[in-house]
Design a protein around this nucleic acid. Structure first.
Lengths: 119, 119
DNA sequence: CTATAGCTTAACTCAATGGTTAAGTTTCAA
DNA sequence: TTGAAACTTAACCATTGAGTTAAGCTATAG
């Protein structure tokens, strides 16, 4: 049972499914590079564990790592998220639709409660 | 090593990370309910395998199942995707920013190539 | 009433995930 | 030049995930 092709979208969603990894990305949200040890500091888990998460993020293309001296700096690359957003966007009408329905219902209630509301 | 809390976002992204499950959701995009066997038909994998995917989607709240007689109908519920979109949206500026930079660069090239472009 | 359509459950396999500890490598600082 | 800081690699473990086959359970069609 070999996994013959894993798409970018698979990797992106999979990488985002873990709270530790989302926290790491959030830490990089500022836009500037952060060292591995600094990224790991807030977590109680071991450094190798954080490293593995960084590997996953790296494989998904969500971060880039550059080594200078003995420290490795990680930087966010949000590009793969664009495709994920695009995929989700196709379903957006479902909840906006739902919100439209809610708004319509509220308008209806308002109209009934105050028949001269627009007079 | 117990998994003490799995958030909605975890389940949503995790559910979306599999191409089979995304295909199932796409099949339900029309908005109307589809039976389990009809959902399974396009796939080469066994029915129980598809069932498990439906279980995952169900646990993530992305589909609802209603049984009438012996057939079970599945319907899309896109609501959990809204939170996922919301999470991704925080990073949107990174790629729009990139597109803005691209556009700026193209404008610059255009200006250089044709200095009287706006004359 | 019986056979089958339409699921569902159970039991199993194998690979991947997410964590650990321990040991190794490279670079900088004293 | 020695030691520690900053990773990295390796080996291991438990759990989960994605698939399988086989058997079971309703509901309906004949």
């Amino acid at each position: 049972m070999v996994k013959f092709q894993e798409t970018q979208l698979d990797r992106t969603f999979s990488a985002l499914s873990d709270p530790t990894r989302r926290a790491l990305l959030a830490r990089l949200e500022g836009g500037d590079a952060v060292s591995v040890s600094e990224l790991a500091r807030p977590f109680t888990m071991s450094l190798p564990a954080v490293m593995k998460h960084l590997d996953v993020l790296s494989d998904a293309g969500l971060i880039t790592r550059t080594k200078t001296g003995r420290t490795v700096s990680c930087r966010l690359n949000a590009d793969p998220m664009e495709e994920a957003m695009g995929w989700l966007a196709r379903y957006q009408r479902f909840w906006t639709q739902r919100l439209d329905a809610l708004e319509a219902m509220l308008n209806e209630r308002r109209r009934k409660a105050d028949p001269d509301g627009d007079a």
